[in-house]
């Protein structure tokens, strides 16, 4: 069975969607050469009119994608640097996202924004290390953060076919993940449907993106003492609340493992919704970035602001102990 890498899965999804639908095209910086690898080989196969290298004009080419989408095309805009999304927040949130409602349903804007390598890559410092998926979820833009190669393939394919703008965050920490998958088994994955990677009975860990792998490792480490269920929402917005309700209904305990800033991050929303809807046996917890994090450069500092396995293990044990440190 082939070992499929996360990057190859994204590359394959782009190639398949380009082949399937002539309205799809890829736009971004260095996409012909494929500096981030996700577009490697596509220019040769589909030509420069469908794999379009843009100058360093993020605001213009993101707005350009809206205009092309309003004209019936399905652009995929690649960003190699997550923090560039702050630069184009206007074009995505204030323009692309608002057209459908503001025009009374006359228009749809099927643009996919693919962020290759979101979050810290260690050593890239303050302006290349953000992981701003919660920001887009807050704004109501469909937002996915695939954790595995198969989901990266399936969610990117679905994002491209979706009639609304969708931001696909491919976490830097997940790009090295490989799956044993038959290419023929790769299928589109619906938005808004989570996945239980590991069943458990005592606590639900909501893990997002690359943190799914860490959560699984922690669940293994603690297996002798605690039965941990790892729930991966896959789509941050719309969130699979029913899927989470089913999991928490079984475990009665909740920890969120989220590489967002603490304040108003998706972890905050999960805990708020849990407080409103779920019967929890113990106060829930979250493990995330500190409030207002600016990722510092030095590796030890970079690691210090990231949610990590130790933090998760501590949180799980605390929740199991009814909110008190064991």
């Amino acid at each position: 069975m082939p070992r499929l890498s996360y990057l190859k899965a994204l590359n394959r999804a782009l190639a398949d969607e380009l082949a399937r639908d002539p309205a799809v095209f890829v736009l971004g910086e260095d996409v012909r050469v494929g500096v981030s690898y996700v577009t490697a080989g596509l220019a040769g196969k589909f030509g420069p009119e469908r794999v379009v290298d843009a100058p360093l004009s993020e605001q213009a080419f993101t707005g350009f994608a809206t205009g092309a989408a309003l004209s019936g095309l399905r652009p995929v805009v690649e960003f190699q640097v997550p923090s560039l999304l702050f630069l184009v927040f206007e074009q995505i949130v204030n323009q692309a996202h608002k057209f459908s409602l503001m025009t009374g349903g006359q228009a749809c804007v099927p643009v996919t924004y693919l962020v290759t390598g979101s979050g810290s890559r260690t050593g890239w410092a303050g302006q290349h290390s953000d992981h701003p998926y919660s920001l887009f979820a807050h704004a109501g833009v469909k937002t996915v953060v695939p954790a595995t190669p198969a989901d990266a393939y399936g969610l990117l394919a679905t994002a491209i076919r979706d009639d609304d703008p969708v931001v696909v965050f491919a976490p830097a920490g997940a790009l090295g993940v490989r799956d044993d998958v038959e290419y023929a088994d790769l299928v589109a994955v619906p938005l808004g449907v989570g996945r239980v990677h590991r069943p458990g009975t005592q606590v639900t860990v909501v893990a997002i993106g690359h943190l799914v792998q860490d959560a699984l490792a922690v669940a293994d480490e603690l297996a002798a003492d605690v039965s941990v269920e790892v729930f991966d929402p896959r789509t941050v917005y719309p969130f699979d609340w029913d899927g989470l309700a089913a999991s928490v209904g079984k475990t009665g305990r909740l920890v969120v493992f989220d590489d967002s800033n603490r304040m108003c991050g998706i972890g905050a929303e999960v805990l708020a919704t849990a407080a409103e809807r779920f019967d929890l046996h113990a106060p829930p917890a979250r493990v995330c970035r500190p409030d207002g994090t600016v990722v510092p450069f030095a590796p030890a500092l970079d690691r210090a602001v990231r949610p990590d396995r130790d933090g998760l293990a501590t949180a799980i044990l605390k929740v199991l102990n009814n909110g008190r440190r064991p």
Binding site: Q59, A60, G63, T66, G67, A68, L70, S71, Q95, T103
Partner: peptide
């Protein structure tokens, strides 16, 4: 393709429509 309330924001949308 719509009036736009952010000054200048319609320019790249127009360029994308022309390209399409």
């Amino acid at each position: 393709l719509g009036a736009n309330a952010i000054v200048g924001a319609n320019a790249p949308i127009t360029v994308g429509a022309a390209w399409a």
